[in-house]
């Protein structure tokens, strides 16, 4: 399959089951909602080292938030509900509670609940106040700029992490420009986040390492400087490879985002130095979800 001069590999991205929640972070204005959300989703590129993968899903207008203020929705992914609970509590406690004018609400219903304000309330030192409106409980914690309002729990849903595709281009800047275009498109879609910096990752990895202590190491087959040795996947024309990793609430969300991203890359096409799109997998044995590139683009 070749689209606009870009070869689409007959391969698939291999993704895993995860647990996720959506948080709605509001503030007096969008600027401060972003500050809180950026901090809360910072250092959340990969569960391997960060415990969670997180990102901003989208901005919310005042009529979309529970308190009628501007806000953003944030998705947080982790390998288990327990780890998710730990991550959400630390991130909200350190990054949202602390951020001026902020409030945080659950953006997702789910049978399973994890604590949001349930434990953070103790910051109130006995002055915290619970309010139960309908079946939602909120905590009001007195803070120096007024009250931090925080929903008691948030729902946990089953989610998918690790959707991906790799962009092979003639040069580093061409690869980067194509990925930026892809990310701009993908960010408009609901239900997904691209957890790496700017949505793009340059250090794709393979399983295992010559060093026993490491479980993963650089994806040497796609490193252009190693083209001449070993089993390189790269043709002589390829100057750089970048990857986009996608975590989504559902398989369909990831499929939709991958299609939009790859289409954006393809529309730049061979004319923009784009040569090929491929995907990372582990032979299909580890991940439950397989995203076949050609199927998605068909």
């Amino acid at each position: 399959m070749i689209i606009n001069g870009v070869a689409i590999d007959e391969t698939f991205a291999e993704a895993f089951g995860m647990r996720a929640t959506r948080l709605i972070i509001t503030a007096a204005n969008l600027r401060w909602a972003h500050h809180a959300a950026n901090a809360a989703t910072g250092f959340a590129t990969s569960v391997i080292g960060c415990g969670a993968e997180a990102g901003i899903e989208r901005e919310l207008s005042p009529d979309e938030t529970p308190d009628g203020r501007p806000g953003v929705s944030v998705l947080v992914f982790a390998v288990s509900g327990k780890e998710l609970a730990k991550q959400v509590e630390r991130r909200v406690g350190q990054c949202v509670l602390t951020s001026p004018t902020s409030a945080v609400f659950s953006g997702c219903d789910g049978e399973e609940k994890i604590a949001l304000g349930k434990n953070l309330r103790y910051f109130g030192d006995g002055y915290q106040i619970s309010k139960l409106f309908g079946n939602r409980r909120y905590w009001r914690v007195p803070v120096m700029d007024g009250e931090f309002v925080c929903e008691e729990t948030t729902g946990v849903v089953k989610a998918v992490g690790g959707g991906n595709f790799l962009v092979l281009a003639a040069s580093q800047m061409q690869a980067l420009l194509a990925c930026e275009a892809a990310i701009d498109t993908m960010r408009k879609l609901p239900g997904v986040v691209m957890p790496f910096p700017g949505g793009v990752v340059r250090s794709g990895s393979k399983v295992g390492s010559k060093y026993k202590a490491l479980s993963a190491s650089t994806n040497d087959a796609f490193c252009p400087t190693l083209r001449g040795i070993g089993n390189s996947e790269l043709s002589p024309e390829t100057g750089a490879v970048l990857e986009i990793v996608i975590d989504g609430i559902t398989e369909a969300d990831i499929r939709q985002a991958m299609r939009a991203g790859m289409q954006a890359v393809c529309s730049i096409g061979a004319g923009g130095g784009i040569q090929r799109i491929t995907a990372g997998n582990y032979g299909g044995k580890l991940g439950k979800y397989h995203f076949h590139l050609r199927e998605i683009l068909a």
Binding site: G68, A103, E147
Partner: peptide, 11 residues
């Protein structure tokens, strides 16, 4: 200005 009153009003 207590923000929770908005939640109450909406409820």
């Amino acid at each position: 200005e207590l923000m929770f009153l908005r939640l109450f009003a909406r409820h």
